[in-house]
């Protein structure tokens, strides 16, 4: 394989993982826009998606497509329960308290997952076989990469349609802009918050499910993926949907090229160093709305 083929391979891998980050970043953004909090339980949504899928497909031999939807719905339900229970009933509504609460919930979920599934990495079968497909440039990809791209694009289109065209989507956007005004206009802010958690759960689950056949999955696989999804969200401009996609793709490419060309041990360090750099140079992120509020 010559150099240009290698580069092509890294780019494909980078785009794949970037797509995952973009979905996760979207989950962070939706909750951030609805509530202003950083939801660290997003990391666990990813792990749970992967582990539900593993249980259904491998342990219970359920059909792949059915498993996909059950797993996604299951994690969305967990997201909703998190909102209905702890988040809604916390005695303090301060943002910092709620952020810490999501950290605590994340620990509880991860600890429970460890009890249920153990600590081993487990595999999930690819959606349509493992036969590599040869690309025009000479590189090869497995079909799962195509599934990841296709599902990511589909998810993005659905989200776009939902937020731009449906009444509920518009209501959620209104809530993001101004909670009080939205409430005055008759929008149930509580319900919008609930939906945002369920959506983020579903998004995290989808990310965890589609990456599992490539990278295997475990009870804590979501930590790194989730934190990098958060990084992608900040990179693109926190709260900005187009930014989430761009941030995810950039982060994925940097990481993959960094791992291939520099050193695979340092790939996470490279990704986060770039993030720090962006944070310092343009803290609003690449697609951030104007100037971040200076205090």
């Amino acid at each position: 394989m010559d150099f240009s083929q290698q580069i092509a391979q890294y780019i494909v891998t980078g785009l794949t993982i970037g797509a995952i980050y973009a979905i996760v970043a979207m989950g962070f953004n939706i909750i951030h826009n609805a509530t202003g909090i950083v939801n660290f339980a997003q990391c666990e949504f990813i792990s749970l998606g992967g582990m539900f899928m593993y249980s259904l497909v491998v342990l219970f031999k359920v059909n792949l497509i059915i498993s996909f939807f059950i797993s996604t719905a299951g994690v969305a339900l967990i997201g909703a329960l998190i909102e209905i229970g702890p988040i809604r009933h916390a005695r303090s509504k301060e943002i910092i308290v709620l952020i810490f609460l999501t950290i605590g919930l994340s620990e509880v979920l991860r600890g429970t997952a460890q009890e249920v599934w153990g600590t081993d990495n487990v595999g999930v079968p690819a959606f349509s076989g493992e036969n590599p497909i040869h690309l025009l440039g000479g590189g090869t990809i497995v079909p799962q990469h195509i599934w990841i791209f296709a599902i990511t694009v589909l998810v993005m289109l659905l989200l776009h349609y939902f937020f731009k065209k449906t009444l509920m989507g518009k209501a959620m956007r209104a809530t993001a802009v101004n909670r009080r005004a939205a409430a005055l206009a008759g929008i149930s802010v509580n319900r919008m918050t609930l939906f945002s958690f369920a959506f983020s759960g579903a998004l995290g689950a989808v990310a965890g499910i589609i990456i599992a056949p490539i990278s295997t999955t475990s009870y804590d696989t979501g930590i790194m993926l989730g934190l990098k999804g958060f990084a992608a969200a900040i990179l693109g401009g926190y709260g900005n949907f187009a930014g989430a996609i761009l941030g995810g793709v950039i982060l994925g490419l940097l990481e993959s090229l960094g791992a291939g060309l520099v050193s695979s041990q340092y790939k996470d360090a490279i990704a986060f160093s770039v993030l720090l750099l962006v944070l310092f140079l343009k803290p609003t992120g690449i697609m951030g709305y104007g100037e971040a509020e200076r205090v």
């Binding site: 005695r91 303090s92 950290i103 605590g104 994340s106 509880v108 979920l109």
Partner: peptide, 17 residues
Amino acid sequence: HVIAYGVFLCLVLIFLP
């Protein structure tokens, strides 16, 4: 370990912020 920390953190945050 992880569960204990998580539960402790959640309970305190919810009931005794």
